[in-house]
Amino acid sequence: MSSSSTTTTTTRLLMLKASDGVTFEVEEAVATKLGAINNMVEEEGSEDLICLPNVNGKFLGMVLEWCKKHANNNTNSDKGNDEVNKWWDKEFVMDLDQNTLYHLLMAADYLSGTELVDLLTEKVASMIRGKKVEEIRETFKIKSDFLPGQEEEIRKKNSWAFE
């Protein structure tokens, strides 16, 4: 992508409407970072208003903020820029609480923002990698459904992973 191509093609604006009625006006190049939007644009073509009934305005805003940054940065991609992107990504998810992270991940998954899903799932993995089984159950709100003795058997078989 060169800067000349962005000046020759007129920048098309899309309206994205979240579940709570909040709307966002974004450049097509930004919104199509999301696979789901890209598909809609390619299929429907002329439609400028896209309704997203599964995403709340707060999280759609955050997803679009990420898209904007990455759409801009892709125009002059080189090795050094890649490092800057990674640094920006890290800052972007640095202080997200568990609840926000969850909703943002669901939004990114729903909108098929593959790279953003990568970033968020890596963040989740980095938070849980060292945790104990009990802590994982608490974090993900899961109840153990093993029969008595089953869990002990798995632990015994893989004791090295519990050290």
């Binding site: 799932t121 893989n158 992973a161």
Partner: peptide
């Protein structure tokens, strides 16, 4: 999504998390 998360975990975490459910 869970599969994506798992793809970033080290082997020993994955093996340990078999015990979750």
């Amino acid at each position: 999504v869970l599969e994506e998360i798992f793809s970033w975990l080290p082997p020993e975490s994955l093996v340990r998390f078999k015990c979750v459910s």
